[in-house]
Design a protein around this nucleic acid. Sequence first.
DNA 1: TATTGTTATACTCTATAACTATA
DNA 2: TATAGTTATAGAGTATAACAATA
Lengths: 155, 155
Amino acid sequence: MTHVVRRAFADASRVHGLTPVQADLLCVLTAGPTQMTELSHILDIEKSSLTGLVDRAERRGLVRRARHPEDRRCYHVELTADGARVALASHDDVTRRLEALARDLPASDRRRLAGNMAHLLAAHEAGRLQRDHPAPSVKPPAARRCAGRRRSGEA
Amino acid sequence: MTHVVRRAFADASRVHGLTPVQADLLCVLTAGPTQMTELSHILDIEKSSLTGLVDRAERRGLVRRARHPEDRRCYHVELTADGARVALASHDDVTRRLEALARDLPASDRRRLAGNMAHLLAAHEAGRLQRDHPAPSVKPPAARRCAGRRRSGEA
DNA sequence: TATTGTTATACTCTATAACTATA
DNA sequence: TATAGTTATAGAGTATAACAATA
């Protein structure tokens, strides 16, 4: 199952000239400008890995860095118009492929499956927040993924 | 959902000193010795990528190449004793993590979920075989994944 | 001193193209 | 000529460690 979904995701990304990780990045950024450190938490990679990832996306004109107005150590990473377009197209493509895979299931099973997915996701987010932030005293990062385009039944 | 499972798989692999792709390789090889070309079909990577993958696994003592007795162009790639041990441990670890994720679901939902997964897998395998082999005149490669340790309810 | 992000380095994974050896 | 596999090359993704700039 893992392989099926991973393959669908990789194929859909490649069609739009993206790697899976770049698609992840654009997807997260559809929720709005985000700092590097927060991105590294959301994507679950090291800051140093993120630097190259954003470099490559910036070189392709998909994202841009903008200095934070108050804290000059930070950047806000945000989508360019082109990046936003590619993010939407790629996301829709993934959705279409997964829906095609699920088309054979009876409607009642699809609903049940969607509910189970949501359940697992919620359990995972709880665990991740707990692990990454044992004492979340200040500002726990929003547990968002593609928040800008979430729809019912999305996996 | 994709991210949850992918993360569980990557974490479990890393604990055993493997990358996800190496875990895939060992997993496939638990079904028995396999040729390079067939491996590249099963893992869905180019032959040239597979060469390096097997090189690194061989360097670590996890697999070995053995010349095919009849066709001297071919190798049989097979697990070493150490590789077999790691493959089992890694696979069990993945299973344990996914089961932990699913533990919150009621039993009836787990059964339904398992059924849905099997359905999607079957649909995917049919599609993959059709795509890879438009005219499978001679020997369509077995659509196996971890055939050696498949259990009911496995995803 | 702590935080944000980058650079340096090394390794893995991947693909395309050209190649060798065998059939 | 066709097939099995490797080598050469290039690029992406990743981590660890050391570092610069800012708070």
